[in-house]
Design a protein around this nucleic acid. Structure first.
Lengths: 118, 118
DNA sequence: TCGAATACCTTGCAATACAAGGTACTGAAA
DNA sequence: TTTCAGTACCTTGTATTGCAAGGTATTCGA
C-alpha cells in the first residue's frame, strides 16, 4: 500500500510528464549524434529528465525493432563494449511528427494557462 | 496483436504526451472556475488535448479522494444533474508545484532541441 | 411512449516505467 | 593471479493507469 503524500503528488506527476516525452527526447538526442544507453541517460539527467536503466534498455530495443533506430558495437578502453545507437532516416521522419506533437501540446497547455477567464 | 504503423507511432506518442499532463490540465481548468466532467473534456478538446470519459471520471474521483478537488451537485434544465468539481486550497498549492514541473520539463526539451551540437 | 441528447459511472485489458537483480568486461591493487 | 571497483549491458515482475466498451438515469420533444 503506497501512501500519497503532498510531495508525492508532485513527484508522481513529474514522472508522468517525463514518461510522455521519453521516446521524443531519445530521438532528439540521437538526431544530434550516436550515443550508447548510459550516455543517453546522462544527457537526459543533465536537463533534469531522469530515466532508469530498466526503462531505457527495453525502450531502445523497441525503437530499434520498429525501425526508428539502429546500433553498432564499439570497443571501449574503459570497460565492456558499448552499443552505439543511431537514428534511421525513418526515425528522422517520425521525429518531425513528434516535434509537431510536442509543439501542439505545449501550445495547448499555454492556452489553458493563459486563456481568458471564460 | 496490434500492428505499429507509421502514423501509429506518432499517434501513440501524442497519447503518451497527453497522459503526462492530464491531471495538470484538469487542475489548470478548475483553477479558473468550477466545471463538470463533460465540460472539462470539451475544454481540453478545444486545445487539442483529447480525453475519453473512461479516463476522466475515475481520475476526478481520485483527485477528490486525495483532497485536490471537491464537488457539488447542480440541477440542469438540459438533462440529468451535473457534478461540478472545484479546486481546493490544497489543490492550488499542488498546482503551483505542477506549474514548476511543467516549466522544467519544457525547458529540458527545449535545451535538448537547441543545445549545442557538441 | 419512444427516441435523442446529455450526464453519470464501472469493468477489463493493454501498455509501460521502474526497482531489483543479474552477467560480463577492463584495469589496477593486493 | 586473485580480487575489487567501475562500467556497461540486459531481464523479470509489479504497479499504475488510460481507454474502449458497456451500462444507468434524467429531460424534453415528437
Amino acid at each position: 500500500m503506497i501512501m500519497e503524500t503532498a510531495t508525492g503528488i508532485i513527484e508522481n506527476n513529474k514522472t508522468q510528464m517525463r514518461r510522455g516525452v521519453l521516446e521524443y527526447s531519445i530521438l532528439l538526442i540521437l538526431a544530434k549524434g550516436d550515443e550508447y544507453a548510459s550516455s543517453i541517460i546522462q544527457k537526459m539527467k543533465d536537463v533534469n529528465i531522469i530515466v532508469a536503466e530498466g526503462t531505457i534498455y527495453p525502450l531502445l530495443i523497441r525503437l530499434k525493432k520498429i525501425g526508428l533506430l539502429n546500433y553498432r558495437w564499439e570497443e571501449s578502453t574503459q570497460g565492456p563494449p558499448r552499443k552505439y545507437y543511431m537514428i534511421t532516416d525513418y526515425g528522422r521522419e517520425q521525429l518531425d511528427g513528434l516535434d509537431s506533437a510536442w509543439d501542439e501540446l505545449a501550445r495547448g497547455i499555454e492556452t489553458i494557462r493563459n486563456g481568458s477567464k471564460a
